[in-house]
Structures are given as structure tokens and as C-alpha cells.
Write a protein that binds this DNA or RNA. Structure first.
Length: 297
DNA sequence: CGGTTTTGACCCGCGC
DNA sequence: GCGCGGGTCAAAACCG
């Protein structure tokens, strides 16, 4: 981590560390072996970090937990990708659902309201079936756990909040964000761990089809990314995510950072910009390099 | 004034 | 079939 980064990091997130997890979602993902674990062979997190973040594995530990569907997220993972010594991230590639996801739901309502109109009658049914398929093939998701006081991590992209829901068994709500770039269907969810309020879980879904907005608040954005630091998440992870596999010696990468603002946005300029970590390694590559590599001494 | 956040309503899938 | 929880919509409020 560069000095600059560090400074920034310390400045903004003195004690934040990042936990991360990448998951493949639906079973439909071509992930290697069928289980929902990430395929270690595909992407070693360490290497990922080193390549994209320029971080060395020794810098921190990474946790990886395989998660199935978010709904079962922290509960299902007995499957676990007992991660060996290294964490691996996998990418699922089902981009199939592409056009959908978003459209799926948005269509929903539109259909409902427009259905009233004649022609939509048929599209309604078709649409539903279609939606179903689309739904099954959700986009790859990547989720990160970051110890931070702020909920909103800045990752360089611009997001618009479109919903918030109370999370069961948690006193903290989950916020839903969508990339504001036109035709970009990337979404992300942000919530706090109910077991450790200091940990923010951010889940990205989809892949950005556009470059990162350049009007970031300078290094702060990058810093932010770094900020989501990683520090020995071990204890945390174990307690919080029983199923999460944890690796020692791995490194963690931070993906985004926050602006000083949190929920509401204390920082006028940074309020809704983050760096997004797409759903997969590729995404990481797309995004990270520009920011992280630069800072590498 | 345009873009974002808030928030209640709605839809859907799933388990019982 | 029903209830529950998750995810999204969209109108209104808010803000720079």
C-alpha cells in the first residue's frame, strides 16, 4: 500500500479492514465444480490482489465465504469452500441473465400498470416466463465485508439508492443501489453485519459496461478503496460468518472506500460515488488497476 | 431544477 | 394457499 493510500486510509478509516467474499450465485453458474464454491484454480485471491492491487498476500488475511443465494447467505455455507491456504475468488459468469435482472423487475411494475392496456396482456405472460429465466440466472455477485463506520463505500462509480429494507435478524437495514450510468445494470447492496455492526457487507451484482467515472474526488476515491482495509478479519469472520472459510496468509484487498459520509452523505461531493468491484475478477481488473496500481510505489 | 434519497407499496419466490 | 422475507418501484421529499 502506498503511503498516500495509507495516509488516506488512516485518515478516513482508521480501523477498517476488509473482509471479502466472492460468490457465485446461482447454481447455474459455470463455476467449476458445481458447488457454489469458487474455483480456486480460476482466481487466486492472492494473485488477484497482487496483480490488481499490488498487495502482497502477507499484508492481511482474507476470508472467503461461499455464499449461495443471498437469502441464504450466511446460513448456507456448510458447503464451504474450505479454502485452503489461499482464498480463491471465483467468477461466475453467467452473464446470461444480462438484459434482465433489472429489466425483470422493472418490467414487472410496468407491466402491471400497463397491462391494463390491451396489447400487454400477452407480453405479461411471456414476460413472466421470461423473467423467471432471467431471474434464475442472476449475475455474478461479489460481496465484500469491510470494517468501517460508514456504510457507503466509495468505489468510484456513481450509485443511486433505490431501496432500503429491514433485514431480518438484524437491526440494520439493507440498502439497494444501482449504477447511475445509463444502461449499466450493476447493482449493489449494502448492509451491516448484525453480528458485528462495525462490519459493512457490500455485495455487487453485475458488471459495469462503462469506464469508471473520472470525476472522482481525486485520490480520496482511491484512498477510499484502499481504505476498506484488511486487517485480520479472522475473528470477525468466524463469528460473523460461521460458514465463511477463512484463510490465513492470504491477503485482502479493499475494494472501495467511503467518503466521509455515510448513509446520508455528509460529504456533498462524494455522497454517491464509489468504486465498484464488479462481480468478478475481470471486473476487478477493470476497475482496480487504474487506481491501485498507480499507488504502488 | 435536476438528481438523489426516503419510504410505503407491491411483486415474487419459497417454505410450511 | 398463506405468510414471510427479499427485492424493486415510484411518488414525494430533499438537497446542492
Amino acid at each position: 500500500m502506498s503511503n498516500e493510500t495509507k495516509d488516506l486510509f488512516n485518515y478516513q478509516y482508521p480501523s477498517s479492514f476488509l473482509l471479502y467474499e466472492m460468490m457465485n450465485l446461482p447454481s447455474s453458474t459455470p463455476s467449476s465444480d458445481g458447488n457454489n464454491c469458487l474455483d480456486p484454480s480460476s482466481y487466486s485471491y492472492d494473485s488477484l490482489l497482487q496483480k490488481t492491487f499490488g498487495l502482497s498476500p502477507s499484508s492481511s488475511e482474507v476470508f472467503h465465504s461461499s455464499i449461495d443465494q443471498e437469502s441464504k447467505r450466511y446460513a448456507s455455507s456448510d458447503v464451504t469452500c474450505e479454502t485452503p491456504a489461499r482464498v480463491s475468488a471465483s467468477s461466475s459468469s453467467s452473464e446470461a441473465g444480462r438484459p434482465g435482472e433489472d429489466s425483470g423487475k422493472s418490467q414487472k411494475k410496468r407491466e402491471l400498470s400497463e397491462d391494463a392496456s390491451e396489447e400487454n396482456q400477452s407480453s405479461k405472460k411471456v414476460g413472466k416466463a421470461k423473467k423467471k429465466e432471467e431471474k434464475k440466472q442472476r449475475e455474478p455477485r461479489v460481496s465484500f465485508m469491510t470494517k468501517s463506520e460508514v456504510d457507503h463505500l466509495e468505489d468510484g462509480y456513481r450509485w443511486r439508492k433505490y431501496g432500503q429494507k429491514a433485514v431480518k435478524n438484524s437491526q440494520y437495514p439493507r440498502s439497494y443501489y444501482r449504477c447511475t450510468t445509463q444502461r449499466c445494470n450493476v447493482k449493489k447492496r449494502v448492509e451491516r453485519s448484525f453480528q458485528d455492526p462495525t462490519v459493512v457487507i457490500t455485495t455487487y451484482e453485475g458488471k459495469h459496461n462503462h469506464p469508471i467515472p473520472t470525476n472522482l474526488r481525486g485520490s480520496s476515491a482511491a484512498a477510499a478503496m484502499y481504505s476498506a482495509n484488511f486487517i485480520n478479519p479472522r475473528s470477525l469472520t468466524h463469528e460473523m460468518f460461521p460458514t465463511a472459510a477463512y484463510t490465513s496468509g492470504g491477503s485482502a484487498a479493499s475494494t472501495y472506500g467511503y467518503g466521509p459520509s455515510g448513509y446520508g452523505n455528509a460529504n456533498p461531493n462524494s455522497y454517491q460515488e464509489y468504486r465498484h468491484q464488479g462481480g468478478e475478477y475481470e471486473l476487478l481488473k477493470e476497475i482496480v488497476p487504474s487506481i491501485f496500481f498507480k499507488q504502488e510505489p
